[in-house]
Amino acid sequence: MNIFRLAGDMTHLASVLVLLLKIHTIKSCAGVSLKTQELYALVFACRYLDIFTNFVSLYNTVMKLIFLGSSFSIVWYMRYHKVVRRSYDKDQDTFRHYFLVLPCLVLALLINEKFTFKEVMWTFSLYLEAVAILPQLVLLQRTRNIDNLTGQYVFLLGAYRGLYILNWIYRYFTEPHFVHWITWISGLVQTLLYADFFYYYYQSWKNNQKLHLPA
């Protein structure tokens, strides 16, 4: 464990807690894409299949439980909670996220480190996580102005990915055999997707304006 990875995990944890806090306290999910949340729940479900069979560390297991619990409860809130669901604007959140799932699955079947069920599902979860933010970014473009909690959520998610890239660089230089091209490339693609959001987020922060993305 290195500081970049710990900071990355904490930032990732903060992003889901910010979102859960927003939804739980103000009982609203305005501006949040349910499609992105469903994709994240699927990502964690496919990635943590080995949660009970492959014990890495207590930290690892606890964090997996937190990510699974938070992502599924966010989906539950947005789908079934009688107050929260009313604030979900489904006619704006129209990204056909099923079109993301299939190509990621096919790609995982073609490009993986080991052709086993668990490994293919793990690789599928990596590719899917790389594109899972797209419905949320499209929704932000549509709704133009972003309430600062949703903005913080996307910002923290991007920061977590950026920190993970530093973690991979660190591990590459400190652990001789640590080479995971698949993880690195999909992680890089994911981080690049945030780049333009970061640009507008920084601009709005610098000019102390309300953050809005160009149409």
């Binding site: 464990m1 990875r5 995990d9 990732h12 080995d50 492959n54 890495v56 560390s57 690892n60 964090m63 997996k64 990510f67 793990w122 993970y164 973690n167 652990e175 055999h177 993880t183």
Partner: peptide, 10 residues
């Protein structure tokens, strides 16, 4: 301790 070979990252 990071488990060698297995996926030890979240």
């Amino acid at each position: 301790a990071d488990v060698i070979g297995e996926h030890d990252e979240l």
